[in-house]
Design a protein around this nucleic acid. Structure first.
Length: 570
RNA sequence: CGGGGUGUAGCGCAGUAUGGUAGCGCGCACGGUUCGGGACCGUGGUGUCGGAGGUUCAAAUCCUCUCACCCCGACCA
């Protein structure tokens, strides 16, 4: 394509007030414009990138036998009411009424509608399994959109759904999706991890997320490169060693005005690991005292999975419930429910609050002095030991580019998606759902591939493969060579996929500097630079955007050199 | 939803303390010169100072309300 036929509004100045690299570069390089909070317009280059990603998605989905369909975005409320999500989901769902006053909503995901059509049409085990997918718009009224296209209120998603007759079938569909996702993200040039994840309200079964590590990510993931244990910190576990036992006399100690573990630890000269931190939380039903080793932190997600939504008691509530202010609460003689973290060793002696102002108690033994229910509710930290192999783990920020969930019968039962098995028995369809956000893939690719000059696209998802840059349009020879190369290179077929080499020619009447700057900004993998200096020696320059590695090649060998250069680039 | 910040020309910003004719750079249009890393000269256009109300002879500037956007947190099915 010709630059003069494309709308690529690059910006000279860096937009202010935003942080995410991908957000800045997508704006600056003319890929997107923002309409309002969380609403983005994809301009020609941005749309080309999304389509490149979508083609990869389609190829890999078709490869596992998934069939593309298209569902409405506007949904009748009744179906969402049947699964209960009309009520459990709150402001995140866009709701409206049609002209007759019927409740409707805009689709934030499509489990309900997919299950509805399956319920209507699938009657027999002979029709199973099925995998249906679409690449389609979702709407979620996000409390806070952020990071450019990383978290928006309207976005495109590849969502697929598997329908199986039994668990073994679901396992197979799930595994096929995982494999397809590995191929997809590899082909898109992303560095990524498949991590264990919290299924949230999607289901209670197995789920994984595909995470592209970058500082712009919203999630923290635990990485053990030694054994391959990868998990979202929301669910991650780690090994924790207990310190050696220390004998302490069982007694109250005076700790005036020392409230936090750190303060008391310093005051008494005892390591934080010999403390029990007592946190008072309140659920819808009851107050709960949560215990965790002094040097550790509570993982609120893990706790919420055990006791439901909760909040930390205020100083006043603590005083009313326990009779002592925060800072001196301890596990002993409590009437309320106690949940303790496994980090507290039942064989050791600990220090904790005495439930009396300005006092702590030392020598507390978990077996002897209080009763609790024991769980893993600890937040994994950097350099903890891997739960599987014991090596130190790493924690990184990551963007969730895809997820896979086993749904089981969570949707098929309420929506009555029932089939008859071989024995003529009625059974609910076993389902899975699987999502990928193409815009996040694009943003993650930028976050992982850029330099001070702009974007460096992985070539699989670049908007063009080659950019031809004639430096001076008033020089006839430059133009002639550039146009010839444009024709010839465009005609080359990619031997691995049935498509043309996509070539952009910068035919603008601009000075060389402007063309160089824009070329680097928009990030096409290969630049072909045609200038009078080179032409004097019968040569043109070819250059890799990623490494800036370049070489002068004779004009008569230009086409083959360009193609070779292209194939050896990532 | 809680906390913080910003709204002045297409973009980046100054002007606001102490009220007095709305500015700068880049971009944009036209003419010319230039052409290997965001050229130069000349000419020209560009605004309801986010909005509403108020104080005042006079408001970008002071007061009240409001809206939008960004960042941190909560949330994220």
């Amino acid at each position: 394509m010709r630059y003069t036929n494309l709308f690529i509004p690059t910006m000279r100045e860096t937009p202010s007030g935003i942080n995410a690299i991908s957000h800045i570069l997508m704006l600056k390089a003319g890929y997107v414009r923002q309409l309002a909070a969380g609403l983005f317009i994809f301009l020609p280059l941005g749309w080309r990138v999304l389509n490149k990603i979508n083609i990869i998605l389609k190829e890999e989905m078709e490869r596992i036998g998934a069939q593309e369909i298209s569902m409405p975005i506007l949904h009748p409320a009744e179906i969402w009411q049947q699964t209960g999500r009309w009520y459990t989901i709150k402001e995140e769902m866009f709701r409206l009424k049609d002209r007759t006053g019927r409740d409707m909503c805009l689709g934030m995901t499509h489990e309900e509608i997919m299950t509805w059509i399956a319920a209507k049409e699938i009657k027999s085990y002979r029709q199973l399994p099925q995998i249906w997918y679409q690449i389609q718009t979702k709407l979620r009224d996000e409390a806070r959109s952020r990071g450019g296209v990383l978290r928006t209120r309207e976005f495109i998603m590849k969502d697929s759904y598997s329908f199986d007759a039994d668990e073994a079938g679901l396992d197979k569909s799930y595994k096929m999706h995982a494999e397809a996702y590995h191929r997809i993200f590899s082909r898109c040039g992303l560095k990524y991890y498949q991590v264990e994840s919290d299924p949230g309200i999607m289901g209670d079964l197995e789920s994984h997320e595909f995470m592209a590590p970058t500082p712009a990510g919203e999630d923290d993931i635990v990485i053990c490169d030694n054994c391959g244990y990868y998990a979202n910190v929301e669910v991650a576990k780690s090994k924790l060693e207990s310190p050696p036992i220390v004998n302490m006399e069982f007694k109250e100690v005076y700790t005036p005005k020392k409230k936090t573990v750190k303060e008391v630890s310093e005051f008494l000269g005892v390591d934080e690991r010999y403390f029990i931190k007592s946190l008072l939380v309140i659920t819808e039903k009851e107050p709960v005292l949560v215990l965790i080793r002094g040097d550790q932190e509570l993982n609120e997600k893990k706790l919420a999975r055990l006791i439901g939504d909760f909040y930390f008691a205020s100083a006043e509530e603590a005083l009313n419930l326990i009779g002592v202010e925060v800072g001196y609460i301890g596990p002993m003689n409590q009437k309320i429910k106690i949940i303790a973290d496994n980090s507290i060793d039942k064989d050791l002696l600990y220090i904790s609050g005495a439930n009396k102002k300005n006092y702590h108690i030392q020598g507390i033994n978990p077996r002897e002095h209080f009763k609790a229910e024991w769980f893993d509710i600890r937040k994994v930290k950097e350099n903890d030991k891997c739960i599987k192999c014991g090596n130190p783990i790493e924690i990184q920020k990551a963007i969730e580019v895809g997820n896979i969930f086993k749904l089981g019968t969570k949707y098929s039962v309420p929506l009555n998606a029932i089939f008859l098995d071989k024995d003529g028995k009625e059974k609910p369809i076993i389902m899975g759902s699987y999502g990928i956000g193409p815009a996040r893939v694009a943003a993650a690719a930028i976050e992982q591939n850029y330099d001070k000059d702009g974007i460096i696209w992985p070539k699989s998802i670049a908007p063009f493969d080659i950019e031809i840059i004639p430096l001076n349009l008033s020089d006839k020879k430059t133009v002639k060579i550039a146009e010839e190369l444009y024709e010839k290179v465009s005609e080359i077929y990619n031997s691995f996929a049935d498509r043309h080499m996509e070539v952009l020619i910068d035919d603008r009447e601009e000075r060389p500097g402007v063309k160089f700057k824009d070329a680097d900004l928009i990030g096409i993998p290969i630049q072909v630079i045609i200038g009078e200096k080179g032409l004097k020696d019968g040569k043109i320059e070819i250059k890799k955007r990623r490494t800036k590695e370049s070489k002068m090649v004779p004009i008569n060998r230009a086409v083959v050199e360009i193609v070779n250069f292209y194939y050896e680039t990532f």
